[in-house]
Design a protein around this nucleic acid. Sequence first.
DNA 1: CTTTTTCCCTGGACGC
DNA 2: TGCGTCCAGGGAAAAA
Length: 276
Amino acid sequence: MPELPEVETVRRALEPVLTGRRLVRVEIADSRLVRPLEPLQVAAELEGERVAAVERRGKYLIVRFESARSLLIHLRMTGSLRHAPAGTLADDPHRRAVVRLDDGSDVAYRDVRRFGTWLVLEPGELAPYLAMRLGPEPLGPLTAARLAARFARRRAPIKAVLLDQRTLAGVGNIYADEALWYAGVHPLRPAAGLDGEEAARVHRSVRRVLRAGIERQGASLRDYVQLDGAGGTMQDEFRAYGREGEPCDRCGAPIEKIRIAGRGTWYCPHCQPSPG
DNA sequence: CTTTTTCCCTGGACGC
DNA sequence: TGCGTCCAGGGAAAAA
């Protein structure tokens, strides 16, 4: 499940591959990828474009073209990208799109569960599209005080608030649980109920786990792989996520699992004291 | 306005 | 072996 560190890892690998390259042929094999537009129409729009830059905002990959158009890619749950010389990637029933570059290589998009999306935006459309969906970048110039101010307006559980992309862009289920474990904050605590010290710990912990995730080139559980097909190693560092019944690395108490906002949530009942 | 729930989608794990 | 059921979850949309 690609979150900010996984998407950033892909972006860093994709940048030297795509920048300056022209898209000479685009095949979109799954109409759901570009719905409600037609695959042939979207492919035709992309063919001939030359890449100016590869950026990331939250969990979105942004391919900027010299034409000032952009392609917005969201991997959602099971999307992944691969890069290889043309024709060398093995047949894959889950391949949803392939882009042929003018250097004779292919970038292929795979997505088992078909939640991912590709969206072509015209000049001027990108900024407002992202602005209405995303809050600040957690690794940008966001201060603890500004994050605390966002928490103060929300009565929902801190876990749900961290997953809300308008509060903070790029945190998903894994890194939310990891950050709250490091912060020592129970995931059900109402966000507005955190004091300044606790909010500062969440701020610091979110940045810590995201940076660690990037250093480890992401967490590979099921489908996420890097551009060359290799996995990341952040899953070896998990303190809470997916560790139900295992001893907490800090105090030894068994990690517990609950559901918040429809998502599995793991935490230490001793280090992260219950709100009730 | 905020918050919660439902839906999309497939494959793997599990019980019988 | 082969079913039926549950689970994984990001974000849009609907419901509360």
